[in-house]
């Protein structure tokens, strides 16, 4: 039997799979980028708490670290006490509601923690939390 073909139709390459592929790659990179969180972690052994509340990771949290020798860190980078006070003053002036996370070691001298918490409280930064040991996160 002779088939009747529509000779007027343009010859086209099917783009469907290519678009599929491109979209999948796009979604992958989007998801991968979203997965990447700046954690600003420093090398510490955080204290253990049974009653700590699990919080979802947030990029806008300001991380102040204090290592076991009492050294200060601002967003993961070593800083001095003068700079810490200056920066807290700036943050208090520009973003008084900013959340602050304190990353401290179990061996950190306690007066150092009080010092930073007092500085935050004095500057009017009230949303201050302390990171505790998390089995899931810290066993990475």
């Amino acid at each position: 039997m002779r088939l009747k073909l529509d000779t007027d139709e343009d010859e086209e390459i099917s783009m469907g799979p290519l678009i599929d592929c491109v979209f999948l790659l796009l979604i992958f990179f989007l998801v991968a980028t979203m997965l990447k969180k700046d954690d600003y972690d420093i090398d510490i052994n955080p204290p253990i708490s049974e009653s700590a509340v699990k919080m979802p990771p947030r990029d806008d949290v300001l991380v102040i670290g204090i290592d076991n020798e009492g050294g200060f860190y601002w967003q993961g980078n070593a800083t001095t006490l003068n700079q810490l006070h200056d920066r807290l003053r700036d943050v208090a002036a520009s973003q008084p509601d900013r959340s602050i996370r304190l990353d401290v070691d179990q061996q950190t001298p306690f007066h150092r923690v009080v010092e930073v918490m007092n500085a935050c409280q004095f500057r009017g930064l009230k949303d201050v939390g302390i990171r505790t040991y998390d089995k899931h996160y810290n066993s990475r």
């Binding site: 010859e11 086209e12 390459i13 099917s14 469907g16 799979p17 290519l18 599929d20 592929c21 999948l24």
Partner: peptide, 13 residues
């Protein structure tokens, strides 16, 4: 041939 080509794309992706 065109359908075959589409198949290759699926395989590659």
């Amino acid at each position: 041939k065109s359908q075959h080509r589409g198949g290759w794309f699926i395989l590659i992706s």
